[in-house]
Design a protein around this nucleic acid. Structure first.
Length: 541
RNA sequence: GCGCCUGUAGCUCAGUUGGAUAGAGCAUUAGCUUCCGAAGCUAAAGGUCAGAAGUUCAAAUCUUCUCAGGCGCUCCA
């Protein structure tokens, strides 16, 4: 509808002023409560200056030259708006359109599908996922889905940092737990229940090798290197399995688990360092190798170890070659790292427009007024598992997705577990279930036909207008990767429906079947929206 | 000190590439059950869009500055 209005205006402009510029014409949904129209355009005001004419006058001329006026009513408002009201009968057809369309999201398809890599979660394998990881996990998963809906090919990848120092600290943490007499830097050690669990496994492994009582020697002595590596591998596997279980619980599945260590095994890190050296963008400072960015950044430390920066560049270098576009989902605390990666990749000859780094702001969880902690190191955290068990996957998805990613998010578990209208997930699902109940009582409603003339109540027109918006709204949500647009819309729709339900009785002695079609269409849209967000649409609750 | 994100009703937040008189929910107050699920609905009240200047016919939205909060400025990960 919006498109056909736009087309009509475009034709009028060519005819009147010989202006052929589609970017000039905006047709927007009217959100102003004091104006009753559906759409408006500001084109007359934008033309006022170049044409040196009064915008009202321009609006009048355009209005007179609109072609397909039979679908809508036009009026002009100061200082130069042209308002379009879709005729009610025309509007009401959206009901059957929704019910007869196979794929409501078909309009989101892109013309040229690309190969995407979406890298997300990628928490260091030094402990279980906690609630702090939840937002990035859910966000990464949903934008991957949105990209797929658009028709792109998407690979979801978890980048496992299994190489650096923090893994050594994890191993030491386990050993420290097994033998209290060993002395390490306490502040570097990981604590928490999971360390105990891992320790049990490792203890068994060491007993088999008769090394359980010689942990100190094991660490010092180079001849036990192989055993030590086996321990390390077993520890990482234990942590990764736990992470996989948690993600599984959230219905998040990765296509690929990429281990940092393979970059070194395949010599890729040295390759890109050589490349950077060749491009003369490195320098040696105090025995360390620096990359010359905004300021010198360390690639190889004085002690010969590689920094994360080095392996990250190797990782991205490889991915840039394999994909058309890469999205990294990072916590907002990493933002200072972005320019470094960009300049590094530029130096390696990559087009950095192919890389998008999505920074997710922190989410704070509350239980009533108590803030929930999430420090891995101290072992004081709530596992994401526990959260999933407590509030359910639907609530997790909804609450993490309902705010823009740039927005700090406070979310209260007491609301998420409540089963009343204070909980928006519940409220939306309830609308879906309520409709199901009615439709169940009228299984053969479609033996009666839909008559657009039946729906003339204000509440019905408002609902239909909302249904009409679904196409634009879902397009915007999916193509701009903003799930919060969808959550907000669904809440609005549920609200309108509940109000309608309370005020208009559908099952009466004389049933108006067009109303049944209307609520069926509402249910269809709610289900589609919820499924898009990985939230269940229950038929009863 | 420098950089990124944020600042809209008491609270949590919407607000479309700049458009008309600023939008919800919660909380508060006052109402609504012989009737499809009250797991709900209706209404009232609540605003210097952090502040200032600028651009524009038009600014919550764009620019600059100031203030406040969060985060980052390691040869940490």
């Amino acid at each position: 509808m919006k498109d056909s209005i736009k087309k009509d205006i475009a034709e009028a402009l060519i005819k009147l002023f010989n202006i052929n510029d589609n970017n000039l014409i905006e047709v927007n949904k009217n959100v102003n409560k004091h104006v009753s129209s559906d759409y408006y355009t500001n084109v007359a005001m934008r033309l006022a200056k170049p044409l040196k004419k009064n915008p009202i006058q321009i609006a009048e001329e355009i209005t007179k030259n609109l072609k397909a006026k039979n679908n809508y009513i036009v009026d002009i408002a100061k200082p130069g708006y042209i308002n379009f009201s879709i005729k009610i009968l025309q509007k009401n057809n959206i009901v059957t359109e929704i019910l007869n369309t196979n794929n409501l999201l078909a309009g989101c398809d892109v013309k040229k599908p690309k190969k995407f890599l979406v890298e997300f979660v990628s928490a260091n394998p030094t402990g279980p996922l906690h609630v702090g990881h939840g937002r990035g996990a859910v966000y990464g998963n949903i934008i991957s889905k949105f990209l797929k809906i658009q028709g792109h090919t998407v690979v979801k990848e978890y980048y496992v940092n299994n190489f650096g120092n923090q893994i050594n600290n994890l191993v030491l943490s386990v050993f420290s737990h097994l033998d209290k007499s060993l002395k390490f830097d306490e502040s570097e050690l990981y604590k928490g229940k999971y360390i105990e669990e891992i320790s049990k496994n490792i203890s068994l492994l060491l007993e088999q090798e008769n090394l359980r009582n010689n942990l100190g020697d094991l660490l010092k002595d180079n001849k036990h290197r192989k055993i030590l590596d086996r321990c390390k591998t077993a520890i990482i596997k234990h942590v990764i399995d736990d992470i996989k279980n948690t993600l599984n619980k959230l219905d998040i599945e990765f296509d690929n688990w990429f281990y940092e260590s393979t970059l070194f095994e395949d010599n890729l890190v040295d390759e890109i360092i050589q490349k950077l050296k060749d491009s003369k963008q490195t320098q040696k400072t105090d025995g360390a190798l620096m990359f010359l960015s905004d300021e010198p950044r360390v690639l190889i430390k004085t002690n010969g170890e590689y920094t994360y920066f080095a392996s990250d560049l190797a990782y991205h270098d490889q991915k840039m070659k394999l994909y058309d576009h890469i999205i990294n989902v990072w916590g907002a605390d990493h933002h200072g790292y972005v320019p470094r990666i960009n300049s590094g990749l530029k130096a390696l000859g990559h087009d950095i427009n192919k890389l998008d780094i999505h920074l997710i702001q922190f989410a704070n969880l509350y239980r009533g007024k108590d803030k929930i902690s999430m420090s891995t190191r101290k072992g004081e955290f709530v596992k994401l598992d526990t959260l999933a068990d407590e509030i359910g996957v639907d609530a997790i998805n909804y609450f993490y997705l309902t705010k823009n990613k740039d927005q700090h998010l406070d979310f209260d578990l007491d609301i998420a577990i409540s089963t009343n209208k204070n909980n928006p997930v519940y409220y939306i699902q309830y609308a879906h279930a309520r409709i199901e109940k009615i439709l169940n009582q009228l299984p053969e409603y479609n033996k009666n036909s839909f008559n657009p003339n039946d729906l003339k109540e204000t509440s019905e027109i408002e609902l239909i207008t909302l249904l009409m918006d679904f196409k634009d709204m879902s397009y915007k949500s999916i193509t701009s990767l903003k799930p919060n647009i969808m959550t907000n819309y669904l809440y609005d729709l549920a609200q309108q429906f509940h109000s309608y339900y309370t005020n208009v009785k559908i099952i009466e002695e004389r049933i108006i079947y067009s109303r049944v079609y209307l609520i069926a269409a509402i249910q269809r849209v709610i289900r589609c929206g919820l499924e898009t967000l990985n939230i269940n649409a229950p038929t009863e609750m």
